[in-house]
Design a protein around this nucleic acid. Structure first.
Lengths: 207, 207
DNA sequence: GTCTATACTACGATAGAC
DNA sequence: GTCTATCGTAGTATAGAC
């Protein structure tokens, strides 16, 4: 399917080079087609970019949607131990996402987009990201009912930050770990430590 | 000074729009000068970009250099309690940096640069960022001598990640906190929680 | 639907006047 | 040092053939 090929190529190019850096000519060229195909199928560069955002939202759903769907509205029924396991699982899934080479392009797209959010960010946030944050907040409410709501929200963002850094500051992380790249060994350590930190934080302030 | 004005404007534009998105014409225009001034003073767009990197490294030094300088080589002499206070102070300084509106432009520059690191990233990393990471690793070694070196390195990156997320995913953080922007109230909570999390993590696994 | 042609704009670099 | 003028290149958009 030409449209899908263009979409995948565009996400890769936008992710690598940013909106302005990527060119429709080059994207079309990589798909062995003419630039005007993009106009025809997506209405232009801007339209292509927004379609990329929708596609990314769909991919996040594919990958994390199961977890979020299982949670949908059930957070309130869980006991603290169940909620804890679910949240740890969610955090690990996000960490794996940030470490997965296959997701590099579109996570880069997303990180770039957050630097100056446009309509594309709205689509992704409203599509799935917001749900992932809200689910985590609800789970944390079961784990730490003592904590004020606004602190729980802050805590969720900080927990996600530990995963995000693995992609957003990849260049610093590889150097900081004195590694050439994040291989299986580094990946394993980082995932274990994110989990351990989260568990420690869940217990924080509680006897 | 025209050169400094161009530099400040360029950091802002590169930060907001990325390397390709920013244009030398526009940067010159914002400084009420001709585009060829950039050629004259910096040798071209690429030269200007690298000068921005050096300027950013200098600004990080201004702001965090004191902390790093005080630490220079003294980490080994400290006892665990001193090291703990120093590292908490360093983390808070970085968190404040990520929250400070004045640093928005150049932190954006840095986040963008990490998406596909060039020579500009080398200059900043070798200039100051590497030192900040290594200092933190040495401090953590005093606090958690039981922890293997490679885990300490990973832990430092995760701790920094909690601060980084405040800038790199600002759009998600403000929405996640249900805030319009990160004001004094949110800033205070986030800084307190980063500190509390770090303290908890320092104790993690220790009785 | 997909291609070729072309129009139009904006960019970075550079030469030369002052 | 700073400016104007110009060149070549590369971008998006669009019209029209097939």
């Amino acid at each position: 399917m030409l449209q899908e090929k263009i979409l995948a190529t565009a996400i890769s190019q936008f992710g690598k080079q940013g909106y302005d850096g990527a060119s429709t000519r080059q994207i079309a060229g990589l798909c062995d087609t003419a630039m005007s195909s993009i106009t025809y199928h997506f209405g232009g560069k801007q339209g292509l970019y927004l379609s990329c955002a929708d596609h990314i939202a769909a991919r996040i759903s594919e990958r994390l949607g199961d977890i979020a769907a299982q949670l949908q509205g059930r957070e309130a029924e869980m006991d603290a131990a169940q909620a804890r396991e679910r949240l740890l699982h969610l955090l690990d899934a996000i960490a794996r996402l940030m470490l997965d080479p296959d997701s590099e392009d579109w996570v880069c797209f997303l990180v770039r987009e957050q630097q100056n959010p446009s309509e594309a960010f709205d689509r992704i946030y409203n599509g799935v990201m917001g749900n992932l944050i809200e689910s985590a907040v609800l789970l944390l409410a079961r784990i730490r009912p003592d904590m004020p709501e606004h602190e729980r929200r802050a805590q969720v963002m900080l927990l996600y930050g530990q995963a995000l850094v693995l992609r957003a500051a990849r260049a610093s992380v590889t150097r900081g770990l004195r590694a050439e790249r994040l291989g299986d060994a580094e990946t394993g350590i980082l995932r274990r430590m994110i989990r351990a930190n989260a568990e420690t934080i869940f217990n924080g302030g509680m006897p």
